[in-house]
């Protein structure tokens, strides 16, 4: 186990070093949600009573957090394709290092990056007048890291399977739109017509968004929190399994 952790750390440190050489990307990644908060948040303020909430930012930041977790992580695979093309993956695969460590080390980088971005977003939320309990924020960020990790692992696995940006980009676009529209990231699904809310029940991310929103609102009861956490953990486990299988596959 300690060998495995050591190998994960070597891969992680290398990835982090490359990212830190270009820290701009971390901030560019956080820029989009920040824009949403600054430019879209104020529009919610006068409407917030109709959405069944009291504080616009306590309502809105959780959605942005999950959006950041999902969409930022979806792009993790693009860097991997570049690395594969330069032979980095193959060079790593020919060492005795555990092949799962090659995935986990990269995932650690994605999670760290996501954590930094999440903290920026939460700090910004407070500055704009968000009112959320500390434990709620902790749980919200934890769920974000789980769902973000799931997306990053899927993205890495998918990238290593197709090995082409030209395939990645349209697929990510195709997945992103329904996720954005059906998970209540921008507006709660409860204000929509019955059929739309019914449809969103089948969108796992919707439960995660609701759970993070409840946690930020200090609302700890009910099944929403349970289902949101269950989906986060479940999707995370599933994605790790897929990613590990892809990295271990003999001819990847």
């Amino acid at each position: 186990m300690s060998t495995f952790l050591r190998e994960c750390f070597i891969v992680f440190r290398r990835q982090l070093r490359m990212n830190l050489r270009n820290p701009a990307w971390v901030f560019i990644g956080a820029f989009q949600p920040v824009l949403y908060v600054v430019l879209f948040g104020p529009l919610l303020k006068p409407l917030i009573g109709q959405l069944g909430a009291t504080n616009a930012y306590t309502f809105f930041i959780p959605g942005m957090l999950v959006q950041l977790g999902i969409f930022g992580a979806f792009f993790a695979g693009f860097g991997l394709i570049g690395e594969w093309r330069e032979g980095v993956i193959e060079a790593e695969r020919v060492t005795p290092a555990n092949r799962s460590a090659l995935l986990v080390g990269r995932l650690m980088r994605d999670e760290l990056q996501l954590l930094v971005q999440a903290l920026i977003l939460v700090a910004l939320g407070y500055a704009m007048g968000m009112d959320a309990p500390f434990d709620g924020i902790l749980l919200g960020i934890a769920l974000t890291l789980l769902i973000g990790g799931a997306c990053a692992a899927s993205s890495l696995a998918f990238a290593l399977t197709v090995k082409s940006e030209d395939v990645m980009a349209p697929v990510i676009n195709m997945v992103m739109m329904p996720v954005l529209l059906l998970s209540g990231i921008l507006l709660p699904m409860t204000i929509g017509p019955g059929w739309l809310e019914k449809a969103s029940d089948f969108m796992p991310i919707r439960w995660v968004v609701d759970a993070v929103r409840n946690a930020f609102g200090g609302n700890w009861d009910g099944s929403t929190l349970f289902w949101g956490s269950a989906w986060s953990v479940g999707l995370f486990a599933l994605a790790i399994w897929w990613g590990t299988a892809t990295f271990r596959r003999e001819n990847a």
């Binding site: 190998e7 070597i10 490359m18 980095v88």
Partner: peptide, 20 residues
Amino acid sequence: TGGISSYARAGEEVMDHGML
């Protein structure tokens, strides 16, 4: 293709590889 990322520093790449 080799196995060195074009943006990484040569020495660090070689060391990381050895540490694996």
